[in-house]
Design a protein around this nucleic acid. Structure first.
Length: 513
RNA sequence: GCAGGUGUAGCUCAGUUGGUUAGAGCGCCGGUCUGUGGAACCGGAGGUCGGUGGUUCGAGCCCACCCACCUGUACCA
């Protein structure tokens, strides 16, 4: 029988993608812009590996039932569990804890890299994706948090998002915790319900006030008919949450919430929860952050105190921030596209302490590189121009001495900084032309025996040629026309190609053509 | 994980009440053409019809289970 059944299938696991061409170029350009801002702010580069000991990453210790829940894990040959990192913060905490004595404090660093999550992929969600983080470790004051927010705003503008098309929303976990305490959800016995409440609030921009209210109460039936159990709060509790956390949201999807100013909201919160120490401390911190940002010239259009921001539920201990894009984009069906948050972060005072016992305050944030790039593409800010391919020297004659001639041409072009290659495949001339077309070559060089005898080469400008060809309807005529093709002396080859490339680089000055 | 939907060529899809050797367009490769991308004409490759089992003389079509993908939802450090 055939070997067909044991041939491997050429395929990629779900949630993973190959990237190439314009997308890679655009990614590189964007990373450069982000890096420039981070360095301007005084952060230094740090690289950590993609693999860590599982216990260093945190809570996801593999168990027998589900060794890979959420994280990709495997055992080393000494039986120790290793995992692919699922964010860049936990590895940073490990690095700081490991080299604590040698590092300057505060320690300010940035890093970009792929992270891995073993979960269900969706549109714009992958199992491998890139993050670009910056963190300040060892700085307890809210100045560090305010600085991160300002840098986040600067970064988004640097990559091409206009002021007004984004907002950095800031909240404080102490406020959230304090309010929950005040409505009787404090203490260990209510940990589960607190989590449910926070998750519900986090869904505000997705489900709207109505949906969140349902999740705070009995629960919610989604479009597919599936029921999500709610937090089962009573009416007064729900009212309190709606009055505080759901209020003042900058983009109400529903008419319900009354948008009030940042300061009014802070005043109200301070008044209503004056006797709750946790909430009051949170409000004080938020006021300071707002004050610092305003003093530096960042208005509410850029950095906004917003009570509905929750962020991750695991390790944030103080201020939390989230960068949201506010412009509207329609998809091909005319429906609005949501980008959601493209970056986020917060204060995590307990993360390094896991390794050291003593508290090490830290704050930082993380940009979702692929998501941000996706958003930029919708904004038309991504250079989607295909790369200009190499000049292709066609092989008209396969005699070894002629091959040497062709390679010499390529070599001369390269020596002059022109991207070039000789056709290395086995095809005939037509195949070679198709190849050049597919590679987006600006020009091909043709030298058969006739040209060789005359000491000449044919240069064909493929871009011009395509333009001219568009006006030729008849096939025979098209072939005879040899559009945008001309002969030059062998010695003038480099100069001729340079001319073609220049014409290509400045098409808007095409009056002379 | 839960709910719903969809699986026929690389892509988009046809395929009669179950009936010989499963089709089209586009794409791909080659030829017409010792000389030219697109177009034209001619030819070619490419399918265990998602998988397994069942019903039947006979299954792409009917039944059961499984798998994959899509959408929503849950989780998301």
């Amino acid at each position: 029988m055939s070997t067909q059944s044991n041939k491997p299938k050429a395929r990629l696991p779900r949630g993973l993608v190959d990237r190439h061409g314009a997308e890679l170029t655009a990614t590189r350009a964007m990373l450069d812009k982000i890096r420039a801002v981070y360095e301007l702010y005084g952060f230094d580069a740090l690289e950590t590996p993609a693999i860590e000991y599982t216990d260093a990453l945190g809570k996801f210790l593999p168990d027998q039932d589900r060794p890979n829940e959420g994280v990709f894990s495997f055992q080393d040959d000494d039986e120790q569990w290793l995992s692919l990192r699922y964010d860049l913060t936990a590895p940073l905490a490990r690095h700081v804890a490991e080299h604590f004595d040698a590092l300057p404090k505060p320690f300010r660093s940035y890093r970009a890299g792929f992270v891995f999550r073993n979960e269900k992929p969706g549109p714009g969600r992958f199992r491998q994706f890139m993050q670009f983080d910056a963190d300040t470790v060892g700085a307890p004051s809210v100045s560090a948090d305010a600085e991160i927010c300002m840098m986040a705003a600067d970064t988004l503008e640097a990559v091409g998002i206009a002021r007004g098309d984004y907002v950095i929303k800031v909240n404080n976990r102490k406020v959230l915790d304090g309010v929950l305490e005040a409505i009787g959800l404090g203490g260990d016995e209510n940990a589960g319900r607190r989590l449910t409440v926070l998750r519900a609030i986090d869904k505000l921009d997705k489900l709207g006030v109505l949906g969140v209210t349902q999740l705070l109460g009995e629960g919610r039936l989604d479009d597919s008919g599936d029921f999500t159990k709610g937090a089962r709060l009573d009416a007064p509790q729900i009212l309190t949450i709606r009055k505080t956390m759901l209020r003042g949201t900058p983009k109400p999807m529903n008419e319900d919430p009354v948008t009030i100013s940042e300061t009014s909201w802070l005043d109200q919160l301070e008044r209503d929860f004056a006797d709750n120490e946790t909430a009051s401390a949170g409000v004080r911190e938020l006021r300071q952050i707002a004050q610092l940002c305003r003093a530096a010239g960042y208005g509410e259009d850029r950095i906004l105190i917003d009570p509905s921001v929750v962020r991750g539920l695991e390790y944030y201990t103080g201020p939390v921030y989230e960068a949201e894009l506010t412009f509207e984009v329609k998809d091909e069906h005319g429906r609005p596209v949501r980008f959601g948050s493209v970056a986020g972060g917060g204060r995590y005072d307990g993360l390094v302490a896991r390794f050291r016992g003593e508290a090490v305050p830290a704050t930082g944030f993380s940009i979702g590189v692929s998501r941000l790039l996706h958003a930029l593409a919708h904004l038309g800010k991504m250079d989607a121009e295909p790369e200009i391919g190499p000049v292709v020297v066609l092989v008209m004659d396969k005699q070894p001495e002629r091959i040497a001639d062709y390679m010499k041409m390529v070599s001369d072009l390269r020596a002059n900084g022109i991207r070039a290659e000789m056709y290395l495949g086995g095809g005939g001339m037509k195949a070679q032309m198709k190849y050049a077309d597919k590679r987006n070559a600006p020009a091909v060089i043709i030298q058969g025996s006739n040209e060789k005898d005359a000491g000449e080469v044919q240069v064909k400008d493929l871009v011009e040629g395509a333009k001219i060809a568009a006006g030729i309807a008849d096939n025979a005529e098209y072939r005879a026309a040899r559009p945008a093709q001309f002969a030059v002396k062998e010695a003038e080859l480099v100069e001729a190609i340079r001319g073609v490339l220049e014409r290509r680089a400045a098409p808007s000055l095409g009056l002379a053509d």
